[in-house]
Amino acid sequence: MTAVVGPSGAGKSTLLRLCNRLEVPAGGRVLFRGEDVAQLDPLRLRRRVGLVAQRPTPFPGTVAENLRVAEPHADDAAMAAVLERVELDGSFLPRPAGDLSGGEAQRVCLARTLLTGPEVLLMDEPTSSLDPHTRYALEALARAQALGGVAVIWVSHDLEQVQRIADHVVVLVKGVIVHTGRARDFDAASMPREALEFLTGTGEEGAQR
């Protein structure tokens, strides 16, 4: 599990969107398992590299209808199974997705993405609109996916969160990666000044938190 941290506008979301080709780079290449993603079929790539957005984006209709957008042939058992992976259950299937709480909706979105069987899971600040309790639950769910063999890339604003969940850390400032390394060895004090201000909460970005 890798965390990408950096101030707003550093290009964290853009980085994720490049990975599943919701955007294409103005220059350079994005490689997935050694292959340029520009050469891959975008629709198949997006099923291998799933994305969970910052805000929950439930589609109109029931939870089951939401899941069937990802996998039209999924039966109730398969859908209940994937809901259990995000700590919901089959009783949610007939419920309107619009009526769910923020945390539940975000889990349904995660379940929807898991149903495509991704090898990589891109999570773009998926907890930023959730309360702390729900946040910890979603972090644990993402950890569980990572332990289950799915590579998780988690974008975050929150250094404490990063230290709770990540194995690796990538620090991004103004579109440039300024640091990569193991989360265990991560030392905020060794970062360049701009990253440091943000990470230690002394810059204007830190003041927002």
Binding site: N20, L22, L43, R44, R46, R47, G50, L51, A53, R55, T57, F59, V69, A70, C109, R112, T113, T116
Partner: peptide
């Protein structure tokens, strides 16, 4: 847009 892109991200054409 966010809804449409969520559909695209699921591999929909």
């Amino acid at each position: 847009r966010s809804e449409v892109e969520a559909r695209l991200a699921l591999g929909l054409s």
